[in-house]
Amino acid sequence: MAVLLLADVNDGALATDAVAKALSAVKGLGEVHILVAGTSAAAAAEAAKLDGAAKVLHADDAAYDHGMAEATAALIVSLAGGYSHIAAAATAFSKNVLPRAAALLDVMVISDVTAVVDADTFERPIYAGNAIQTVKSSDAKKVLTVRTASFNAAATSGSAAVEKVSATADASLSKWVEDKVAASDRPELTSAGIVVSGGRGVGSQSDFALIEKLADKLGAAVGASRAAVDSGYAPNDWQVGQTGKVVAPTLYVAVGISGAIQHLAGMKDSKVIVAINKDEEAPIFQVADYGLVADLFNAVPEMIEKL
């Protein structure tokens, strides 16, 4: 059977890394058709380059441009007939849309899949990653979101055909008002090779600039703990953890972060973890490959200077 893979499109641009990782996760399940919803022809063309995509379905309608759940879920349901699996990267966009589509199809959704065992069986973390559960679905169609940090991105040397699909979207339930998205030259948090994160220990929004400076020196993305976001030191989209983003970079540097399980849930699969904390008992040291017990206000400037 075939897989319908819903693509993330942000402001007309394909979230290539997320879609490419989700594609690797599901390509063993059958022929993959990528669904690009919205008016961006560029996003559809970009999706067509992903290796392993048999074709791209482009629902070229402005009703889908802001990823509104009601219209997008209805679109998926209208296309669902020929597919055994409906999948997407586990992003804020698809976590909004896919459970809605699943309920309309009267099937369960399987969120945050970290391994595909077979066509019916999937692994997913529960309890903030403190347990990994293997679940088997008895539903006729499987609807799943895939945790991108667990898969490698498909290459972009393909050239699949782009086919237009039409659907009538009912846009009366909800209206997009605005997006507040900060433009940044830094790598994206979930695909960066290096992430530098700051916690409550950083102490203020102005001192968070230190974390950003270190990140820029390393060519890294910037992350934060929930406490740092709640305190207004960092924006919400930088939060790493159980209820934020899950990252698995080659190098994760945690500065002034204690290492609560909810934070560890978002970064403990990083290849190398560095912790800088002035409390030698901080739990973050239990997962860190390299720990430095130091005041961050001395250590971070020194590190910036010596790199």
Partner: peptide, 10 residues
């Protein structure tokens, strides 16, 4: 709260 920041809808 969305991946890129904040989105407002009605």
């Amino acid at each position: 709260e969305v991946d890129g920041g904040l989105q407002t809808i009605a």
